[in-house]
Measured scan of single mutants.
Amino acid sequence: NNDALSPAIRRLLAEHNLDASAIKGTGVGGRLTREDVEKHLAKA
C-alpha cells in the first residue's frame, strides 16, 4: 500500500525502479524503512 510510504521512501523506490511489495518492511506496522530498501539493494 503506497499510502503508508514516506515521500523519501517513495523517491528511493522510484530512483531504483523497485516495487514496494517486493520488500519486507521492518518498521512500525510493517512499514518500509530506508534500511529495508538499502538492504534489498545490497542483495540485488
Rank of each mutant, 00 (worst) to 15 (best):
N1D: 14
N2G: 13
N2R: 08
N2T: 13
D3C: 05
D3M: 05
A4Q: 14
A4M: 14
A4P: 13
A4T: 14
A4K: 13
L5N: 06
L5E: 08
L5S: 05
L5W: 02
L5Y: 03
L5A: 06
L5D: 08
S6K: 05
S6A: 10
S6R: 05
S6M: 06
S6P: 13
P7S: 09
P7K: 12
A8D: 15
A8F: 03
A8V: 13
A8S: 12
I9E: 08
I9Q: 04
I9H: 05
R10N: 07
R10L: 04
R10Y: 01
R11M: 07
R11C: 06
R11H: 15
L12E: 14
L12A: 11
L13M: 05
L13C: 04
L13N: 00
L13Y: 00
L13F: 02
A14K: 10
E15G: 04
E15N: 06
E15I: 07
E15L: 07
E15S: 07
H16K: 02
H16N: 09
H16G: 04
H16M: 07
H16D: 03
N17C: 06
N17V: 05
N17R: 06
N17Y: 08
N17W: 06
N17L: 08
L18E: 04
L18W: 02
D19Y: 02
D19A: 08
D19T: 09
A20Q: 08
A20W: 06
A20F: 08
A20R: 07
A20K: 07
A20I: 14
A20H: 07
S21I: 08
S21P: 04
S21F: 05
S21C: 06
S21L: 08
S21N: 12
A22L: 14
A22T: 14
A22F: 10
A22H: 11
A22N: 12
I23E: 01
I23D: 01
I23H: 01
K24F: 06
K24A: 11
G25R: 07
G25E: 02
G25T: 05
G25S: 06
G25K: 06
G25H: 07
G25D: 02
T26F: 01
T26Y: 00
G27K: 02
G27P: 01
G27N: 03
G27M: 02
V28Q: 12
V28E: 14
V28D: 11
V28L: 12
V28M: 10
V28C: 00
G29V: 04
G29M: 08
G29Q: 09
G29E: 10
G30N: 06
G30Q: 04
R31V: 14
R31Y: 07
R31A: 14
R31D: 07
R31F: 07
L32V: 14
L32D: 00
L32S: 01
L32P: 06
L32T: 05
T33I: 06
T33C: 03
R34M: 15
R34E: 15
E35M: 11
E35W: 07
E35V: 09
D36K: 00
D36R: 00
D36T: 01
D36I: 02
V37Y: 03
V37R: 00
E38C: 07
E38D: 09
E38N: 09
E38G: 06
K39Y: 08
K39E: 12
L41A: 06
L41N: 02
L41F: 06
A42P: 05
A42H: 10
A42F: 04
A42T: 11
K43Y: 06
K43L: 11
K43P: 07
K43V: 11
A44K: 13
A44G: 11
A44T: 14
A44L: 15
A44R: 11
